[in-house]
Nucleic acid binder design. Sequence first.
DNA 1: ACAAAAGTGTTCAGCCTACACCCATGG
DNA 2: CCATGGGTGTAGGCTGAACACTTTTGT
Lengths: 248, 248
Amino acid sequence: MSQSYFLILMDLKNFLENGNEFVLPNLSIDIVIIGYSAEELKCLLLQIDDKWLLPGGFILKGESVEDAVKRVLKERTSLQDTHFKFLEVFGDKDRRFKEMWKEFYQKSGLSWTDDCWLNSRFITLAYYALVNIEKTFPALNETDQAFDWFSFDKLPNMWMDHRSIALTARNRLKEDMKQEQITFNLLPAEFTMPQLHQLHQTILEEKLDRSRFQKKMLSTNLFERLPEQHQDSPGRNPYHYRIKAKNY
Amino acid sequence: MSQSYFLILMDLKNFLENGNEFVLPNLSIDIVIIGYSAEELKCLLLQIDDKWLLPGGFILKGESVEDAVKRVLKERTSLQDTHFKFLEVFGDKDRRFKEMWKEFYQKSGLSWTDDCWLNSRFITLAYYALVNIEKTFPALNETDQAFDWFSFDKLPNMWMDHRSIALTARNRLKEDMKQEQITFNLLPAEFTMPQLHQLHQTILEEKLDRSRFQKKMLSTNLFERLPEQHQDSPGRNPYHYRIKAKNY
DNA sequence: ACAAAAGTGTTCAGCCTACACCCATGG
DNA sequence: CCATGGGTGTAGGCTGAACACTTTTGT
């Protein structure tokens, strides 16, 4: 399912004109979808005109906020059961896209006025999600021209406050990973300790002692060592691990 | 200023009928206002009919979310510069007050229908605030019959999910105080270490070593010891402290 | 056998814990 | 001068930091 459910049900013109009948007004959801590849933390962005923005959406009138986030995530990444977490409310008093939607209205033969529902003030509920970048197949909807993964160090020009939302998520991840074991969501289901070690160093932007890191990770008892196999690189090959099934 | 600014500008009938013209729809703010007295953590609640609810309000159309929280806090407690923090989004799909407002509509000669704006689904942005209970002078507005402070262990019957919001705040406080020094907001401007010690024990619901507690607190360098004075109790009298002015 | 990379062990310092001891004051 | 309660010191244990050593495998 690579298309947006929302836009399957209504074409662009109908969405621009009547979307407000189906979603809660003045409220949006934005998700900082974080991946990891080539020893860099990356963020999934969508292009509209010459700027980029976070994947996001709206809350349907009969839908819980949580379900809306899950739906948007699934629409955008085709992933189910993605790890996600609330980030922050962005609620400035005149927070609106202004010119972004203008072109779409004009293309669709609609007039762009101050009272277009998409031109109103939006409070956004920002979330962040951790995904395995290899298993993530982003989907475009009718308004997006492209998607791409950007290193947090080289974010492009972005719409509105989306850059600061993305960077807030990057910093939050640093804090959260000290409290809970969540980083494995960024790796394949089977991974090695050296991989996890490098990932932590990348996120924290500092060197971590190899010995201590390994002992700390294994002492959590969350990791299950797999029978040694995979011999493909010079030198000793690391064990592979996966996350133990939770004991309910 | 002990009255609600919002209800100064419009009387109850007008608010029930036309409030939606001034505030963002489907969105509310609720604040768990936490105080401390008699070695108990307490929560400020307002009474409507036979149930209680959290102090809350709405976001004015030209107002940031942050400003709305500050306004509601000031309206309800007459306090300025209160410590507050975001708690959680409560966004269930059919989250509404149902019968709560019915009586007010009928009293005001308005018909209570399914499409009353106050009967619609509300997503609430929940915050918690820490206040000095002695300096807090709660204010009622036209819809509230009473206010009272309730121990979190003996919360009364509450509207909708407000009980679970309150308890979420109580638990969050436990977590947050381990990370940042915030608890002094619950005490007078000048307090003693034994007081702070007892407060921490109350919040965490566990015994804390006196010696270690004192050393840990003083090692943060956030506390300023005042010249010894106040002699009123038997035994040695504790030093008084206040929070150092922040060094900007 | 050697280099490279992974895994494990050892030592030391610092912090947390529990408890003992010292101080100030009122009766 | 003793009871009460506040303030400070100290010995033991645990945890984290730095680094050394061992293991595995390709060349």
